[in-house]
Structures are given as structure tokens and as C-alpha cells.
Amino acid sequence: MQRLMMLSAVTRMPRHEATTLVFDTLNRLGGWVDDVHMYSNIMNTIRFTLPGEALPALVAALADSHIAIDQDGLPTACPPDKDLSGSLQITFIHNEPDLRRAIPAVPG
């Protein structure tokens, strides 16, 4: 059974720009996005699948774009012939107030 690789990162980039960058980088490296959860304007969690040999390139590309991945969550060895499943939690540092969304009234 393959364990889910859990990565975390912090950035000062705007959340829409950072999320698009991660999506595009994963796609360029042969991976894909499985799921996304957005928690206000504080944090996004992106579940993804990526070829094992592409993990170092993902970490380097995001670091070059000012999304610093915590090195503690990185596996020590990546199998080059297997896909890796993982999640990337990105915390956004900014001075904006919490994002509030109106909840529509539901009858009943």
C-alpha cells in the first residue's frame, strides 16, 4: 500500500496566482490534480498524482517561484517507475481580512 506524501508550503504570492502555478507545474511535469480544498484566503490543499522522477523538479520549480516547500515532508527516495500520490498544503501570508462568502438561504 502506497502512503500519501504530505507536503506543506508557505508563500506571499496571491492565492489565485499560486494555485494556478501549482496546477500548471504539475501538468507540465506529467502529473494531475485529484482534488482541491480552499479554506477562505488562508490556505489551499491540493491532492495530486505525479510521476516519481518528477518530484525533485516540482520542488525546484515551486521554490524558484517563491513557494517554499517544507523539506521535512519530502521522501528520501522516489521510485522512478511509479506514480506518487500526495497533497500540498499552501498557507498564504498576507494582510487581507478573512474572505467571507455569502451562504444562500435554503428553503426548509
Rank of each mutant, 00 (worst) to 15 (best):
L7M: 10
V10M: 12
T11R: 01
R12D: 10
P14H: 15
P14F: 15
R15T: 03
A18Y: 00
T19A: 11
L21W: 02
F23D: 04
D24E: 15
L26M: 09
N27T: 08
R28S: 02
R28A: 10
L29Y: 05
G30E: 12
G31K: 08
V33M: 05
V33W: 04
V33Q: 04
H37G: 05
M38I: 13
I42V: 13
M43R: 15
N44R: 04
T45I: 04
T45A: 14
I46E: 03
I46Y: 04
T49H: 10
L50I: 02
E53C: 03
E53H: 02
P56Q: 02
L62N: 02
D64L: 02
S65P: 00
H66M: 10
A68Y: 11
I69E: 00
D70K: 07
D70V: 04
Q71M: 10
Q71S: 15
L74M: 04
P75H: 12
T76R: 12
T76H: 13
A77C: 06
C78N: 11
C78Y: 11
L84P: 02
S85M: 07
S85N: 06
S85P: 00
I90N: 06
T91S: 15
I93V: 15
I93E: 14
N95S: 14
E96H: 09
D98C: 05
